[in-house]
Simulated scan of single mutants.
Amino acid sequence: MTVSGEFIAFLALALVAIIGGVLLLNLKKVVHMVVALVFTFLSIAGIYVLLSAEFLAVVQILVYSGAISIIMLFGIMLTKHNDEDEGDSKGGGWRKAFLFLGVLAFGAVFYIGIYNLDFGSAPAALHENNPEQIGIELYSKYVIPFELMSVLLLVAFVGAIVLSRNDEKEEADKE
């Protein structure tokens, strides 16, 4: 087995993604959880770059690492929550041990599952005009679901505005 730079980069990015996910589940402060989630999102974008999907990597960074993380931080800042750390409940050490064993079992199952996996050698033009290929697929085969999703997002946006205006009116009526 030869070890290439791409293999080392994949292992590093995969390790950061796994560590970010585990930290997300184990950290106590919500802001720290969001930071761990950002590291996971960025490492997934790096994996997309390794797969020659630069367009998806940029979208991953812009949408998930940027917009979704900022929305989560605003949601955390605008809501009331208790920042006090609660003491570890009984069995905290056992919980961490089971979590570690679960992560190891998950990794072992995936390693066994993909060790001898062979997809064949079908020729594919992966590195040629990624955004163009995505656009052609999106606007030829999937144009109806794409338009339905835009209408759904528009309805959700209008609904959020109506709900926020109703809350403002109720607060004004109480005064």
Rank of each mutant, 00 (worst) to 15 (best):
K80H: 12
V22N: 05
T79H: 10
E86K: 15
G20V: 00
L126T: 14
E137W: 13
G87L: 15
F55W: 12
R95W: 11
Y115H: 13
L101K: 08
L99R: 14
N129Y: 03
I134H: 08
F98S: 05
L126I: 10
K28P: 04
F146A: 10
L50V: 09
L56Q: 06
L117D: 05
L51V: 03
N130S: 10
H127R: 13
K90L: 15
F110V: 02
E84K: 14
I112T: 07
G21Y: 02
I19R: 01
A108G: 09
G75A: 03
S52F: 11
G66F: 01
I70C: 14
H81R: 09
F106Q: 07
A67F: 07
L104Q: 14
I44M: 03
I134Q: 00
G107T: 01
G93D: 05
N26G: 09
A17P: 00
T79M: 06
A125T: 11
S65L: 00
K90S: 15
N129W: 02
M72F: 14
I47M: 06
L138M: 12
Y139R: 05
A45L: 00
G135Q: 00
G87P: 12
G87D: 14
D88P: 12
L37H: 06
L126Q: 10
A125D: 12
T40Q: 04
I19Q: 06
I44N: 01
M77T: 12
G21C: 09
N26P: 01
Y48S: 07
I71M: 15
I112Q: 05
L117Y: 08
I134P: 02
V49N: 00
L138C: 06
I18C: 04
A36G: 02
K28D: 12
E128G: 05
F98P: 02
E132W: 08
S140K: 08
V143H: 06
E137Q: 12
G113N: 09
G87T: 14
V103D: 05
M77V: 06
G21P: 00
F146K: 13
V16H: 01
M72N: 11
V63D: 03
V58T: 15
V143P: 01
V58F: 14
G120S: 05
G102A: 07
L78I: 12
A122K: 10
I136K: 11
E128K: 06
H81E: 09
V59E: 06
V22W: 04
V16Q: 00
G75M: 01
F55G: 00
I112G: 03
L104A: 11
F146H: 15
I144F: 08
E128S: 06
L25C: 03
N116V: 07
E86C: 11
A36E: 02
F39P: 00
H127M: 09
L73S: 13
P145C: 06
G135S: 02
L25W: 05
T79Y: 04
S140A: 13
D88V: 14
A57E: 00
G107Y: 04
N116P: 06
E128R: 09
L62K: 08
Y139S: 03
F119W: 10
P131F: 08
G92H: 15
E132D: 07
F146S: 11
M72A: 13
I76C: 03
P131S: 00
Y111K: 07
F100P: 11
V143L: 12
L78K: 15
D85K: 14
K90F: 14
L56H: 03
L23F: 09
V38F: 01
